[in-house]
Nucleic acid binder design. Structure first.
Length: 731
DNA sequence: AAGGATTGCTTTTTT
DNA sequence: AGCAATCCTT
């Protein structure tokens, strides 16, 4: 029996205590949302450090995002003290692997200063491959090829092992081969390689594996359901001997299968570790009963899952508001108005999040928020590090690190324009392919042989000397200083600041990047570039900022907010049409995505969908999401709204400006009966006749929204108990 | 070689 | 609708 009064176990429930103090060996904690998964993981580490006297350097904790890693490190610092907390390894799979590969580069086929390609770079590289292989890029879309290659890598296949059944497979295999060769010649790795290469390394170098088995004697993994095969094999390699693997998972929150994540890893774990201890966490600390029940009702419809009976002590709770809007503008207006009235009840903006399926959906919300002067913060979308100007500047820095980086070379060789046109570049690239060397080396060679056109000679010479200068300067300069030198030498500022507002904002972005480098004077260039390649947008969420958070359902994983809006709950959007076309399993994953969204909410949940939505420039009618039909009636503020009911007055233009009633988060149950209902004719002493649009009980008040027939009056809201409002006599 | 006009394509989700 | 790739003109 564990002493639950131990300082580290106080405020934990029995299940959690067991999970924290369980004996060493393979452990799988299966937990529902809001059950304190990450908290348990953190306490487990603190427990190991302080009670079992586990040496900190032997612990590896793997998290899903850098943000989670940072939070865990901070919590551990307060729990066990700074030295110990900083002594252990905490980080994402990718960051951990990147570090191992840097250290052990001599055992690999690439050098220590390899670069990490982001999605854009990968696509650019694959485009080059497609061109080089003379493929029709309509029939063999680079993005599709990249996807196939990525899947293959996730399954730990080499180009030679790629299974060929059709001609299409043959083409993929060729592209795969060339793509890997291109990565090698640029001394670059993509995201998948970061995971695959350590596996290869450990499979071939027994001594190295032994070293890391001793180094990572205790391994803990968060969000285990979202690991892919490469990650699983890596974990198995490291732990199959000492068998100290502690995994925390929720299969209902598996939402990354399109990226290779495989929840069947949970089954593999049970098979490979038959002595596995399994612990269930079923108490939810986050959400009210109403929200949790809705979430469970939704997820219960998925087949092939282990049913979990989750419960919460937050009984009751504010009802869920389900809203149909005419289009995405009105939906956004509804969200904005609702947020404004929440603000009036004392809610801070950073307690509110608006979620959606696709990044494109943020636009309508942003436009409305800007108009309403509602501060918001957008997560994802076009990431900071994906912006053109930032990628340019990073390309310069990458060349300073590694002049053989062909992708960066081609990106900025003529940015700003310096007279190296497509012809010259083509000559260089062709010569590089012939000589099997980098573009930089080929350019040097061509220059020596005087094989370039006379016009191109000078600019090429100039560019090469710039890069050479930066490479030399890199050793003795901080990243900021190097960046300043580069920006000066290529005159990037006057290139960007062309007088347009856009130019100004681009330059501001460059300055923001400069500020990032200035903050970290101790970081070497290669470490800076690695960090930049591996940060996610969610990593930078500052909880203190007074703004509404806008983010995709995927980005919302692991986060929680008192108030959550989930918008765009329409067939084709959630579930997404791609998934509907794809397979029932894909639709099941969409359902899990909805589940993840619902369970982010602590107090109050708003769901909305639009009757029609803009798509490729036109606006098409949609239908409410199939998932809405699975919500329980109890707990819904307006259960009828989810039926696909188009009979009730669409098209009235005044609808678009209809304000929505305030619905602050309240815990107490409603006790009074509404006097009015939607569609009912009413008469107001001052405003005349109208129709009830909505009547909602809030606290002990009935709030009626009325559309008056007099257009000059439009829509008004009243307290039913106070207003001179009566049901109108029937005509 | 650079800038402007036209086409055609896109929207899943991201470490 | 918006944007990137491509074409076309100078």
């Amino acid at each position: 029996m564990v002493d639950q009064t131990h300082p580290l176990l106080r405020n934990l429930n029995t299940q959690q205590c067991e999970a924290v103090t369980v004996a060493d060996g393979p452990v799988l904690v299966l937990a529902g949302p809001g059950s304190g998964k990450t908290r348990v993981l953190t306490h487990r580490i603190a427990w190991m450090l302080s009670e079992i006297q586990t040496p900190a350097w032997q612990i590896l904790a793997v998290t899903f995002t850098n943000k989670a890693a940072r939070q865990m490190r901070e919590r551990l610092t307060t729990m066990v003290g700074r030295e110990t907390a900083l002594d252990m390894s905490v980080g994402t799979f990718h960051a951990t692997c990147a570090r191992i590969l840097r250290r052990e580069a001599e055992h690999t086929r690439f050098s220590r200063d390899y670069l990490i390609l982001d999605a854009d770079d990968q696509l650019a590289l694959m485009k080059l491959v497609v061109k080089e292989l003379g493929l029709d890029d309509k029939k063999y879309r680079p993005a599709a090829l990249l996807n196939a290659v990525s899947q293959a890598k996730n399954e730990l296949l080499t180009p030679e092992q790629y299974p060929i059944r059709t001609y299409h497979d043959e083409i993929v295999a060729r592209a795969f081969t060339r793509y890997q060769a291109a990565l090698r010649s640029s001394n670059a790795l993509d995201f998948d390689d970061l995971l695959v290469e350590p596996v290869r390394l450990f499979q071939t170098e027994a001594e190295l594996l032994e070293k890391y088995r001793r180094r990572f004697r205790y391994i803990l993994v968060d969000e285990f359901q979202d690991t892919n095969l490469a990650q699983y094999v890596l974990l198995r390699l490291l732990t199959q001997e000492h068998r100290s693997l502690y995994a925390v998972a929720d299969e209902d929150q598996s939402i990354y299968s399109w990226r290779g994540a495989d929840y069947r890893n949970i089954r593999r774990l049970r098979q490979d570790y038959p002595e596995l201890t399994q612990i269930l966490l079923t108490e939810n600390y986050r959400s009210t009963e109403v929200i949790l029940n809705a979430a469970q009702a939704v997820i219960a419809h998925n087949p092939d899952r282990t049913p979990k009976q989750l419960f919460t002590k937050k009984k009751g709770g504010a009802t869920i508001t389900l809203r149909e809007a005419y289009d995405e503008q009105e939906e956004a207006a509804f969200v904005a108005r609702e947020i404004q009235s929440l603000q009036r009840t004392g809610k801070a903006l950073n307690e509110i999040a608006v979620m959606y399926r696709t990044n494109a959906q943020s636009r309508a919300l942003e436009e409305t928020f800007i108009r309403e002067k509602l501060p918001y913060r957008l997560i994802g979308g076009v990431r900071f590090y994906a912006r053109k100007e930032i990628k340019d500047v990073l390309a310069y820095l990458r060349l300073a690190q590694n002049s053989d980086d062909n992708i960066s070379f081609q990106r900025v060789v003529n940015v700003p324009a310096r007279g190296i046109g497509t012809r010259t570049l083509a000559t260089i690239v062709e010569s590089a392919t012939q000589a099997n060397c980098s573009a930089y080396q080929a350019a040097q060679q061509l220059l020596q042989e005087r094989a370039l056109g006379s016009r191109a000679e000078r600019p090429v010479q100039f560019f090469l000397s710039l890069v050479a200068g930066w490479q030399e300067a890199r050793e003795s300069m901080t990243v900021v200083a190097l960046l300043d030198r580069i920006l000066g030498e290529v005159d990037y500022q006057s290139f960007l600041r062309d007088g347009s507002d856009e130019g100004e904002s681009r330059w501001e972005n460059v300055l923001a990047l400069r500020a990032v480098t200035a903050e970290k004077p101790d970081l070497t260039l290669i470490d800076f570039l690695t960090e930049v390649a591996l940060v996610a947008d969610v990593d930078d969420i500052d909880e203190e900022v007074r703004a509404v958070t806008l983010l995709t359902l995927h980005s919302a994983k692991g986060l929680e907010y008192p108030i959550v809006f989930i918008t765009g709950l329409e067939e084709g959007l959630l579930p997404h049409s791609r998934s509907i076309e794809d397979s029932p399993e894909a639709v099941a994953e969409e359902r899990r995505l909805f589940y993840v969204g619902i369970t982010r909410a602590e107090e109050r949940l708003y769901l909305s969908y639009a009757f029609r939505r803009g798509w490729y420039g036109n606006s098409d009618p949609t239908g409410p999401s199939r998932f809405l039909g699975d919500l329980p009636n109890t707990g819904l503020a307006n259960p009828k709204a989810r039926s696909n009911n188009r009979s009730q007055g669409w098209g009235g233009s005044s609808w678009k400006t209809a304000p929505t009633q305030a619905a602050p988060a309240r815990r107490e149950r409603t006790s009074i009966q509404p006097r009015f209902q939607r569609g009912q004719r009413v008469h107001h002493r001052r405003f005349g006749d109208g129709a009830v649009q909505e009547s909602v009980i809030e606290g002990n008040e009935e709030i009626v929204t009325v559309l008056f027939f007099d257009n000059r009056i439009g829509v008004k809201q009243f307290l039913a108990s106070m207003a001179p409002l009566e049901p109108a006599a029937e005509h």
